[in-house]
Design a protein around this nucleic acid. Structure first.
Length: 278
DNA sequence: ACGCCCGCCTGTAAGC
DNA sequence: TGCTTACAGGCGGGCG
């Protein structure tokens, strides 16, 4: 799915193209995509007539401020897309929710696998009603922490590094692609225990997190061969061309030329260089 | 508290 | 060619 760089790319597009607009009508084609609501009307009536006042991102969540203390929460899951299209555009397969604006144009939520979701909730009870948001760890770009604090948090756990990077309660926004790319950049193995890092290694890891994410945003995220991730306009990202280990088993390491390996780690694929990641 | 597995879904590619 | 299986960027729950 979209990870932090892809969600941030979409957020910036939405800010320019959609924020400030007023919602005329909402069509829900699939209950599963609004599964926290008891029925379609319960969701659509909370949006119709409202304005998208502003938009924030926390980790992989998009939070639209609707005014009147209400928030539209969007999580794209594994295959979710948000597309801004003219009202006359043909309906793409797997379109789950359609939001029509008063000045014309639509925002469409397309999601083949339906792991993504949208819901409206009160802003002041957001964290009570949505525990996964309340428990979200720091966002490395929106709420960076001092590296000594990061060091303390790593020291306080005895988990493998990749497990921690993927744990949204520890750090918000990373997924399988960027966890692997960050660990490569930092020169650290996926299975290195978090409490064994030297302070130099902690700094390298923190710097790698920030650099890889910034770089990926600069290139508008990663679109893999399945083309599941596209931006608001339907365009691909280009950061996949700069991946140094993800999906590159059998190819030479860009740093030391040793062959990149692919392993299974807690049920999913991981790529790394066995020579320069320690 | 942690690690591991499953289920949630559809779509695609690889394997037989 | 056609069927089966594995796998895919996420996440929550349950189990030992």
């Amino acid at each position: 799915m979209p990870e932090l760089p892809e969600v941030e790319t979409i957020r910036r597009d939405l800010e320019r193209e959609v924020v400030g607009r007023k919602i005329r009508s909402v069509d829900v084609h699939e209950m599963r995509s609004i599964r926290r609501h008891p029925h379609k009307k319960h969701f659509s009536s909370k949006l119709e007539g409202r304005k998208l006042v502003s938009l924030r991102r926390r980790g992989k969540y998009l939070l639209f401020d609707l005014g009147d203390d209400e928030v539209l929460v969007v999580h794209l899951g594994m295959s979710g897309q948000l597309r801004k299209v003219p009202t006359s555009a043909e309906m793409a397969p797997n379109t789950r929710v359609v939001i029509t604006f008063t000045q014309g144009g639509q925002l469409r939520f397309i999601d083949p696998r339906m792991f993504g979701e949208m819901f409206v909730t009160a802003a002041d009870t957001l964290t009570d009603e949505v525990p996964e948001l309340a428990e979200l760890g720091f966002d490395p770009l929106e709420e960076p922490i001092p590296w000594v604090e990061f060091a303390a948090r790593l020291q306080g756990r005895r988990a493998k590094l990749k497990t921690l990077l993927l744990d949204q309660r520890f750090i918000a926004g990373l997924g399988n692609i960027y966890a692997d790319e960050i660990l490569f950049e930092a020169g650290l193995r996926y299975d290195r225990r978090s409490d064994t890092l030297s302070s130099q290694e902690v700094r390298r890891l923190y710097r790698a997190i920030v650099e890889v994410l910034h770089d990926a945003i600069k290139h508008r995220g990663s679109t893999l061969a399945d083309a599941q991730y596209v931006d608001l306009e339907g365009s691909h990202g280009s950061y996949q061309d700069l991946h140094r280990v993800y999906g590159r088993d059998g190819q030479p390491c860009p740093r030391c030329r040793h062959v990149i390996e692919k392993v299974k780690f807690s049920g999913r694929s991981s790529w790394y260089c066995p020579q320069c990641q320690v």
